[in-house]
Amino acid sequence: MLGHLKQALSASIGKKAWMAVSGLLLVGFLVTHLAGNLLYFADDDGSIFNAYAEALSSNPLLPIAELILATLFLAHIALGVRVSMENRAAREVPYHAKAAHGGRTTASRSMMITGLIVLIFLIIHILDFRLDPKAHDDMAGAVQAKLSSGRGALTYGVGVAALGLHLSHAIASAFHTLGLNHPKYDSILQTAGRGLAVVIALGFLAFPIYIYFSGGAA
């Protein structure tokens, strides 16, 4: 049993499958996170958004959910770094002349870089809103205070843009890795994957853009 699990984690397709599963679960988290955040735009001086934040942080099951999320992130990152290092080692001498003609894109080329930016952004984001006790008294006010500054808006804008670029390659790629692709629906999968990435990125980008330019009057 353990040997089987170990083999599944050391095999190339096994590692990629775990990366795909953890990544897709994290996309699921992003969609719920965005849905909750959008309550900020309710025209009620942030009271429903604050009530949502309060309901989340006072839920006794929250630590378990956070532990699962942290595990998913760490597994995804650890496997990503390992796969990337193996990939570098697989070609010791680079080509002198370079030409790419397949599906290689800015997004697919920069997965490690965008992943690193998202990680740094995630740490800043957790420090700003999850670990700052003052933020929990008035979440809507804390969001407004953070994103109405140029520096705050820029940090969140860059973090979310990197996330969007990462996802534009990641979502369809994860399905392919899990074997869930076929010539009959490949083009739909590619479009839907990029589409979902754009929706998630634009959804989250709405916050720094709206708050910075409106001065935060929600």
Partner: peptide
């Protein structure tokens, strides 16, 4: 000692 697939489809091209 081959690398891992990153679904970039350079092989197919």
């Amino acid at each position: 000692g081959f690398g891992n697939c990153t679904n970039e489809r350079e092989c197919e091209a």
